[in-house]
């Protein structure tokens, strides 16, 4: 009963945000054909409008959900006699539930995109999967396989996004004020100042290595989303393990 309750509580915690997000995305989808219908420019010059990577938005949204999913839930769980382990296990279940729900929502967007996509309407819709893994000369995903692969890829991507957000928020909770400021400021300085400067002096070798790593780990050049799914899964497992190490001994802070 208590375990059901903590699962339900954590899921309900995201309900309003998820509903608002879905409504906004659907409104955006509805606005595109309306905008094209009423835009005289497009009708007269026969330009096309492209909706691309709209399903990246849920990944960002779920990352933020992950960032906001720890402190309140942790304290509320302890108040109600729920152990850290039960909270964490149920958090994983909630993350998977949200990822599956959002992946299904993205498939709905894909279906709607396909519906409104036509040369006559001037709208071209491409999913995140197509954007990353299709390039000129490769066989495009189509039909049921596109939906199936998209669903799997997005589910794993959304789990990874939440896992990263949750890990960051748990790590920040464990830190004291000085540590928090040092890590946040240090991160920005290293990523946005130090690394670009060093990169500039060594003829862009760092960015080349990073891009190559991203390319190989995500299977982009290989046009294989399953490599990407595998890497995201490994990333999620590592981040989840590290999060558990941080959570298992954490206490209520004054």
């Amino acid at each position: 009963m208590k375990l059901n309750a903590i699962y339900k509580y954590q899921l309900v915690d995201h309900r309003n945000a998820v509903l608002i997000f879905c409504a906004v995305i659907l409104a955006v989808m509805a606005l595109v054909p309306m905008e094209i219908t009423f835009s005289s420019d497009i009708l007269t010059t026969n330009q096309s409008s492209q909706i691309a990577g709209l399903d990246m938005a849920p990944a960002v949204f779920l990352f933020i959900c992950g960032l906001n999913a720890f402190k309140e839930n942790f304290l509320f769980a302890l108040q109600n006699g729920i152990s850290r382990k039960s909270l964490f296990v149920n958090r994983i279940s909630v993350a998977v539930t949200l990822a599956v729900a959002m992946a299904l929502f993205s498939l709905l967007l894909l279906a709607l995109g396909k519906l409104i996509e036509s040369p006559a309407s001037g709208i071209a819709y491409s999913s995140l999967l197509s954007m990353i893994y299709q390039s000129t000369g490769t066989v495009p995903f189509s039909g049921l396989s596109e939906y199936l692969v998209s669903f799997l890829f997005l589910t794993v991507l959304f789990i990874a996004a939440q896992t990263l957000g949750y890990f960051i928020t748990v790590a920040l909770y464990r830190m004291n004020k000085k540590q928090k400021i040092s890590y946040i400021v240090g991160f920005y300085i290293v990523v946005f100042v130090v690394l670009p400067i060093i990169d500039m002096f060594i003829s862009g070798q760092i960015s080349t290595i990073l891009l190559k790593f991203l390319d190989i780990s995500m299977g982009i050049s290989a046009h294989n989303p399953f490599i990407g799914m595998f890497s995201l899964l490994i990333f999620s497992i590592i981040a989840t393990g590290l999060t558990w190490i941080l959570i298992r001994k954490t206490g209520v802070k004054n």
Partner: peptide, 30 residues
């Protein structure tokens, strides 16, 4: 932990929750 309840000095309930909601959730846990 299901056998005990601590009414602590520090508030561990989400501040955006109403008292009614807190009562209903407590019923779910206990």
């Amino acid at each position: 932990q299901g056998l005990l309840y601590l009414m602590s000095e520090k508030n561990l309930y989400p501040e955006s929750m109403t008292c009614n909601e807190a009562f209903k959730w407590t019923k779910q846990f206990f």
